[in-house]
């Protein structure tokens, strides 16, 4: 009996071992974000609760716990409550396939990149459901905007991923990282890295593309009617998604857990730390962009996605494929 239940317990332990760090780092990353934002604007940011204000997010979360959850009278109750749950669940389950080092991964599946892509394309449902179920005009407008925005930018992210996959020849995230042992893909595919980064900003509804919650026009977009713990879950899911996009960017372009140079001081640092450093670097860029770039107009956002990013990344697919075929560099070895 014990023997049959032990693998199951082991699995649960491993899942908890991935989830807890993600949740804790989400709390830390919110603090980091606000801190960077503050410093850019010559403020101090949160610096009171705990050392350097590190526990500010925990204090906020505690506050959300104690607040009342209000469900509007004319809302569709089931969908209204489901929406934040779906957002947070989807943001967390995608972490199952992210490899932190060569052996440190929860599920090493063959179609890892497709799994992440599928999960992130489901993320739009939390927003649409929340916006529609609130039965109020600002959330609904925010949800419509966000659905159009996320679907549009997913297309260009998909094509960027095709670029990387052409150079790798496998859908497995581990193989994608190991293919970058010689050179990180950020060098040969630099334009794609830039477009991926901007599309990730739009995909996670970060400024300058935070139109679904543009407070000047839509109060708080799809979150307007949410309060208490349900609002906090939206917010947790959002930041977990941002971290996921940073992790995806570092796996696709910055060589995942691989060290900067494979020589003495660099390769002594353990690989998960490299991965965390790369995620933090990308998140730092996210935070800086939030602080320094003004919000886009909606038609400009759509134009950027469909008329610039999509044709350009398609052109780059053709270029990459022709280059690989001409110089006979297409990956053939491992299937």
């Amino acid at each position: 009996m014990i023997e049959s239940i032990l693998p199951f317990l082991n699995q649960v332990y491993r899942i908890v071992f991935v989830l807890i760090p993600v949740l804790v780092s989400v709390a830390m990353i919110v603090w980091f974000d606000r801190r960077v934002w503050g410093l850019v604007q010559k403020r101090r940011g949160p610096n009171v609760v705990g050392p350097f204000g590190l526990f500010q997010t925990l204090a906020d979360a505690l506050k959300y716990f104690l607040k009342e959850i209000i469900v509007p009278a004319s809302a569709n109750k089931i969908i209204f409550i489901l929406a934040p749950i779906i957002t947070m669940t989807l943001a967390l389950i995608a972490w199952a396939v992210i490899p932190m080092s060569e052996n440190f991964v929860l599920a090493d599946i063959n179609v890892g990149i497709l799994y992440i892509f599928a999960i992130s394309s489901l993320g739009v449902y939390g927003i649409i459901m929340g916006g529609w179920a609130s039965n109020s005009k600002y959330p609904f407008l925010g949800a419509i905007r966000s659905a159009a925005q996320m679907v549009s930018y997913e297309v260009s992210i998909g094509i960027i991923i095709i670029n990387v996959l052409l150079c790798v020849g496998s859908l497995n995230l581990k193989d994608i990282v190991l293919a970058q042992t010689q050179v990180w893909f950020v060098l040969p595919l630099f334009p794609m890295f830039v477009i991926f980064f901007i599309s990730a900003l739009a995909e996670t509804n970060r400024p300058p593309f935070d139109l679904p919650e543009a407070e000047a026009e839509l109060v708080a977009g799809y979150q307007t009617e949410y309060s208490g713990m349900m609002y906090a879950m939206f917010w947790l899911g959002e930041y977990a998604n941002i971290l996921l996009m940073c992790a995806l960017g570092s796996i696709l372009f910055l060589g995942g857990w691989l060290p900067l140079f494979d020589i003495a001081p660099f390769n002594l640092i353990p690989s998960p730390i490299w991965m965390v450093l790369k995620i933090l670097f990308l998140f730092f860029l996210f935070a800086m962009i939030k602080a320094i770039v003004p919000r886009y107009r909606y038609d400009q956002l759509m134009r950027l996605g469909w008329k610039i990013f999509l044709p350009f990344s398609l052109l780059y697919v053709v270029l990459t494929a022709s280059f690989l075929v001409y110089f006979d560099l297409l990956p053939k070895g491992k299937i």
């Binding site: 892509f117 599928a118 394309s121 489901l122 739009v124 449902y125 659905a147 679907v151």
Partner: peptide
């Protein structure tokens, strides 16, 4: 996965 991406992620939206 393609079913999830294409049908759930795009068509059903």
């Amino acid at each position: 996965m393609i079913l999830l991406i294409v049908y759930v992620g795009a068509v059903a939206v």
